[in-house]
């Protein structure tokens, strides 16, 4: 390689390297270092594992952490269940303009910010909101019903936010399935369930895993939806991080929580990949 070409290559790579270095690696290294500094006296810090110990000794912290993990897995599973038939329809039934329309319809909610989208749900779900009104109007309820500030509302909001990110990789994966392979599945005597279980789902596996990873990560790291729809019952781990950084002004503690959350996402994604026998490479290609 001539030096000129090497320079060109370097210049082309520079934005990517800067992006990775400045926005991802550097802050995380900083957070990692910060998370190991203990406050021993006002404004006096020293190296130690105190921030991590605090996490394990204070039940509120690790319970919130576990709750976030379990709820996120639940949200991912529900999103997958809802998205699969939609993606199947988009990929295998819809044609031409209908297909484009359907994808656009999935995209539509993302034209407004997450905050506005969540506020929209609050309008619908609150005590004086539309659903409560309809329930009373149809005689299904006698008093105003508060649908906000419970786990159901949080899950609803998170599933709604994740749906698109599940549908797109799923539809992509399903689209590449040769229709005659499905027909061969029936032809050789397979029922709908057999064809789905032995042919369609295995084929869509990279898409399922890719979509699940994306939705899981978005859900675990979400902040606005659990706070707004769950209120003080939201109890999302990101709230704890926010509280440490902003309310308590205890940055090292917040940094430790941040690292733990990163560890959690990585561990669950890794477990998911292992469980489904998928490689990270094939999965990323699908997403």
């Amino acid at each position: 390689m001539t030096s000129a070409r090497r320079l060109t290559l370097f210049l082309m790579m520079a934005p990517a390297i800067l992006w990775l270095g400045l926005l991802i690696v550097l802050p995380h290294v900083e957070i990692l270092i910060l998370s190991f500094s203990e406050r021993v006296a006002p404004r006096v810090y020293q190296f130690g594992f105190g921030n991590y110990l605090e996490f394990f000794t204070e039940p509120l912290y690790w319970r919130t952490f576990a709750r976030t993990a379990i709820m996120s897995i639940l949200v991912t599973a529900i999103t997958l269940l809802l998205a699969f038939p939609i993606a199947l329809y988009i990929a295998r039934v819809a044609r031409g303009r209908v297909k484009a329309m359907l994808l656009l319809l999935c995209l539509l909610p993302f034209w407004v910010s997450e905050l506005v989208r969540t506020l929209g749900w609050m309008m619908l779900l609150r005590e004086t909101g539309l659903i409560s009104y309809l329930l009373r109007a149809t005689g299904l309820a006698t008093q105003p019903v508060e649908l906000l500030y419970n786990d159901g509302a949080v899950i609803l909001g998170l599933v709604y936010g994740g749906l698109l990110f599940m549908i797109v990789p799923l539809a992509n994966a399903l689209e590449s399935l040769d229709p005659s392979v499905v027909e061969a599945g029936y032809d050789l005597g397979g029922s709908r369930a057999t064809v789905l279980r032995r042919i369609v789902i295995p084929h869509a596996m990279p898409g399922i895993v890719a979509g699940s990873i994306i939705v899981f990560m978005l859900t675990v790291g979400n902040f606005a939806t659990p706070v707004l729809l769950g209120g003080k019952n939201g109890l999302w781990f990101t709230e704890q991080i926010y509280a440490q950084f902003i309310t308590r002004f205890n940055w090292p503690q917040g940094a430790a929580f941040g690292m733990l959350l990163l560890l959690l996402s990585s561990a669950i994604v890794w477990a998911g990949l292992r469980l489904t026998g998928q490689g990270l490479g094939t999965t990323l290609r699908q997403a």
Binding site: D178, S180, V181, E183, A184, G185, D187, L188, R198, I199, P202, H203
Partner: peptide, 12 residues
């Protein structure tokens, strides 16, 4: 039973 034009073997 049918042998398809594309054979349609199950790649999975």
């Amino acid at each position: 039973n049918m042998v398809f034009q594309s054979l349609a073997l199950f790649p999975m």
